[in-house]
Design a protein around this nucleic acid. Sequence first.
DNA 1: GCTAACATGTAATCCGTTACATGATTAT
DNA 2: ATAATCATGTAACGGATTACATGTTAGC
Lengths: 185, 185
Amino acid sequence: MVRGGASTLEYALLGLLHQAPASGYDLRKTFVTTPLSLFSDSPGAIYPALRRLTRRRWLAAVATLRTGRRRQAFAPTSAGREAFARWLRQAPSRDDVVRDWDVLMLRLAFMSGNAPPPEIVAFLEALEVELTGHLAGLQSFLAAAGAKLTFSGRLAFESGIYGYRAQVRWLGRSLVRARKERRRS
Amino acid sequence: MVRGGASTLEYALLGLLHQAPASGYDLRKTFVTTPLSLFSDSPGAIYPALRRLTRRRWLAAVATLRTGRRRQAFAPTSAGREAFARWLRQAPSRDDVVRDWDVLMLRLAFMSGNAPPPEIVAFLEALEVELTGHLAGLQSFLAAAGAKLTFSGRLAFESGIYGYRAQVRWLGRSLVRARKERRRS
DNA sequence: GCTAACATGTAATCCGTTACATGATTAT
DNA sequence: ATAATCATGTAACGGATTACATGTTAGC
């Protein structure tokens, strides 16, 4: 909703359907059998989301295979592909880094094939800016108020620092590889 | 809701009020000025949450300061303190580690003062079990299906690995310190 | 006198969770 | 036969987001 029209679940479904048409049941299985497990496989979430996307004309039902079994597969429309590309192209904000890192990684995961290599590099570069900015903010919080933290409060805070530092390292390595990939294309 | 009665926001408010009575406005400020910024400072979330907690008798309004300004401060009741302690005491599940790491860290942050040191150690030990288990699952997914990942898909996946590995290192260090802390008490 | 900060609220909307319901088909 | 899996749905509920509304007090 926040980012221009659809929920994260809806974009995730839309992205998966970019790879191949699939039914609600297929998509649910994908959520349980892959590290996309951050989404629930609840039918009460997925089927209504598919219908919302269909009503919006971002998805269309494709010809059902003629096995006896009931089954409705979906594929993105051209409007759906455009909306998805717009979603991928959004600049990562500081707020995304703090609250929705997993959504940023979902977007990154979908970029190969759906966005040109330079866009991946630009995305990672923007990520680096926001990430190091946020880390600096955490450090200065620690300097200013660290003395007041309780023992376990400090541990929890340091967990955050460890996590973000790891992502900075990951970013350094990923940027090198993404720039190499860009040159190759 | 999932974990026995209240939303994460409600537990966060309850926890903050364990430190000192505060008003909705105070709590909102806390959310913007500290790394608790994962919560929104929206009045539409906080005031209704405070009222729900009051209706449940987990919070009670305390005497308002006699400045002209309207202001309603809250403090936990004994039932609220018990419920909060129960929340802190829950064993971290695999699912918590995957989907709600930040909630686990919120609970940890509140433990000093609200739970005895051995409980902190037990919490971290349970965390270690689930965390290393989850990491092993990610590794075997990579071994089994890694070849099928796209370029950016692999980058996103590796971001997860980097993050969890960092938490394993953080846990190792934290456990040492927590055990030392336990001996000191 | 005006602006910013203080301080609390409410209403519409949306989406995810939970739980329940239904029926077809494959494997044992 | 019957259990497990395939496959899709619906209804109740709750809570967060957004936006709007209202009045007070302190500082310039």
